[in-house]
């Protein structure tokens, strides 16, 4: 039986966040899984609503990961990037987010606005799109990256794409539904980015990536790239990345 996750509708999420930001971090009373906002709801059927102990555990795990990367102490760019990579890998493997529930925006609104708004604030400040479900949501975007760029449990460097790719590259892949929704294509694009960055240098990659993504999207309309043999796909992507 699946675990059903709490859902916080968009307008209610905005209201919760407005309240959180107006009163300030200091006045936030912390996450209490036994006292969820009234607007939180669950799917009516199809599984068992997640219990307070699982939600407590989720909060504890996220806080532990954040503290290991400077939460409450520092927010330098390297620490934040390392936090992103670590949490992306963690979320992609978390049992709680292994079902279709994790494809819903309102689930991630709940995680960001109710479970861990303090961590979101440390990571992104008051930018509201980082709390509301969607491709910019602090945790949803990391879950999407982890799921799209996982090289598989048998790979010796399973999560290397998450640490090697720049923020710009990760955004270009996961915020394009035609690429980010398909792990085969997303991973191949990530691998091609790494090959290209070793030749062109990371500093040149932003413009190359933009041209490549445009070319991939156009090419994919007339040719089913994800269905090609891996070596064939890599050849095409090499051309796109000017290798």
């Amino acid at each position: 039986m699946s675990l059903l996750l709490p859902r916080l509708p968009g307008p209610a999420c905005e209201s919760v966040i407005r309240d959180f930001l107006e009163h300030g971090l200091e006045r936030w009373r912390g996450f209490d899984p036994a006292n969820l906002p009234v607007s939180v709801r669950f799917a009516a059927t199809g599984g068992t609503p997640v219990g307070t102990s699982e939600l407590e555990e989720l909060r504890a795990d996220l806080e532990e990961l954040a503290r290991a990367h400077g939460f409450g102490v520092t927010n330098d760019r390297n620490s934040l990037a390392a936090f992103d990579a670590k949490v992306a890998a963690w979320l992609a493997q978390a049992e709680l987010f292994s079902t279709g529930e994790a494809l819903r925006d309102d689930v991630w609104s709940f995680v960001s606005a109710v479970v861990a708004p303090d961590i979101v604030h440390w990571r992104f400040g008051a930018a509201i799109e980082r709390y509301i479900g969607g491709v910019r949501n602090t945790f949803q975007r990391l879950w999407m990256r982890g799921r799209a760029l996982d090289r598989g449990p048998d790979h010796p460097e399973r999560w290397k794409l998450l640490t090697k790719l720049t923020e710009d590259a990760l955004v270009q892949i996961t915020e394009r539904p035609s690429i980010g929704s398909d792990p085969v294509l997303a991973r191949a694009v990530g691998e091609a980015w790494i090959r290209a960055s070793e030749i062109h240098g990371k500093s040149a990659m932003e413009s190359i990536m933009r041209r490549a993504i445009l070319g991939i999207r156009i090419r994919n309309e007339v040719r089913s790239l994800a269905d090609l043999r891996p070596d064939n796909l890599a050849d095409i992507l090499n051309q796109m990345f000017e290798i």
Binding site: L103, D105, S181
Partner: peptide
């Protein structure tokens, strides 16, 4: 086969 809200699937489940 894909799933997820939107005009394009959010996740390709299998091919």
């Amino acid at each position: 086969i894909g799933t997820g809200q939107g005009r394009l699937p959010r996740l390709v489940v299998s091919r």
